[in-house]
Simulated assay, not measured.
Amino acid sequence: MTGLPSIPNPDLTVGKDNKQGWNQPDRRREGFHNGHARWRRMLMIRARRILSLRDTPDPRLSAAVEATGLTRNPAFSALVVAEGDRVLHSSHAGDFGPDRPHSIQSVTKLHAHLILGELVASGRIDPDLPVVRYLPWIGSGYAAASVQDVLDMNVENDFTEDYDDPQSGCYAEEEALGWRLPPDGRAEITLRDFVAGLTGGDLVNRTGHALYKSANTDVLTLIAAAVGDQPPLARLQAIADAAGYEGGFHISLSPDLLPALSGGACLSARDLARFGLLLARRGGAVSGADVGDRMFLERSLHRPAPILGATRGWVRYSNQLMTDGKWVGHAGYGGQFLMADMETGRVAAFLSVLENDSGYDDAYMAHVIRSLEGVLSTR
């Protein structure tokens, strides 16, 4: 039937600076707090059993949190610090509650670490082989790159992730992640077709630091779908069971119904802390089977890998996680960070929403990392 009144979806339609409605600076905070209800396609997973957490506030730790200034920053949404089955600190902004899901953006990539770790450990993936061995249809942007270099953000190609550039490739990628609609009624591009169309030269990274590209995680998602004995969505369900989430784990889906492991998850701060505790347990499950691979995770802590760059030169990017050799974690666009101290088992889940034009601030993220390191070391 035609002729019925309709308007373009205001959340998903692209507007100023090539950003869709939910990611416009004046709507970004609301968008991050409600991404699970704003994006094109979302899958929600509940855990079979819930990891019970006891609130046992630690005054010294809360004083350390206060000293960082993180919770007084206008961007702040939530911070939860936990260890074992105890919540040592929990604070939330006035417009964001403890049970609310929040976009965690690239913190989602830690799920790719767990999934690829299993596939490497089982022999289904050899990290030294080129991507083309697993994805014969792949284009020049990744065909000759080793899977290991993709895991380490160590690939030079034509995909760009510059949040200050409205025409950067990462914004075109969002269509394949289910975060925006194409113009003029054009069909949405699938994750496979988006990745297949990426181009590159010899792919050798000569910068001396990691070249952060979310498209790398998209490639790994497609490899996992191609070679795994179960689909990526089934592995995400296993991770949810292993973590013991209390609320829903929400993940956006591509038009070809693949999970957006590069940045599409939404979790409450307490459930993000539960995910961090899962990492601290090295994949040990609350219910169901253990996830990831313990040796893959241990090697990721200590193996040589590219540093993040000048402002975060003490942090390396290794196997789809960030590490200083003591903690593992990941940052997320907009101001997220999850950190798990692998020596003490203490974790910090930090959520915030930057409302500047780009939605990113490198100095801010470096401050967040240093602040969480200090908080986790407080005894």
Rank of each mutant, 00 (worst) to 15 (best):
A273T: 12
A273G: 10
A273R: 11
A273W: 09
A273L: 10
R274Y: 06
R274I: 12
R274E: 10
R274W: 04
F275Y: 15
F275S: 02
G276Q: 05
G276E: 08
G276M: 06
L277Q: 10
L277E: 04
L277Y: 03
L277C: 06
L277W: 10
L278I: 07
L278Y: 04
L278C: 01
L278K: 04
L278R: 07
L278P: 04
L279F: 15
L279G: 03
A280E: 09
A280D: 09
R281T: 04
R281A: 11
R281K: 08
R281Y: 01
R281P: 04
R281Q: 02
R282K: 15
G283H: 07
G283E: 09
G283Y: 03
G283W: 07
G284L: 06
G284K: 11
G284S: 09
G284V: 01
G284H: 11
A285T: 02
A285W: 07
A285L: 04
A285E: 03
A285I: 02
V286S: 00
V286D: 02
V286I: 14
V286Y: 00
S287P: 02
S287I: 03
S287L: 08
S287K: 05
G288W: 09
G288M: 12
G288V: 08
G288C: 11
A289S: 14
A289C: 06
A289H: 13
A289N: 10
A289R: 11
A289P: 01
D290P: 10
D290K: 02
D290C: 02
D290F: 01
D290M: 01
D290T: 02
V291L: 05
V291N: 07
V291T: 05
V291W: 10
V291E: 06
G292H: 08
G292F: 11
R294K: 14
R294I: 01
R294S: 10
M295A: 15
M295V: 14
M295W: 06
M295C: 06
M295H: 14
M295L: 14
M295E: 14
M295S: 15
F296I: 01
F296S: 01
F296W: 14
F296Y: 15
L297D: 08
L297W: 03
L297M: 15
L297S: 11
E298G: 00
E298D: 15
E298N: 06
E298M: 05
E298W: 00
E298H: 00
R299N: 14
S300K: 03
S300V: 01
S300R: 01
S300L: 04
S300A: 15
L301P: 00
L301R: 13
L301H: 05
H302C: 05
H302K: 13
H302T: 15
H302Q: 13
H302E: 09
H302A: 13
R303D: 15
R303T: 09
R303C: 10
R303K: 13
P304T: 08
P304M: 07
P304K: 07
P304I: 05
P304L: 08
A305T: 09
A305Q: 09
A305K: 12
A305Y: 03
A305L: 10
P306K: 13
P306Y: 07
P306C: 12
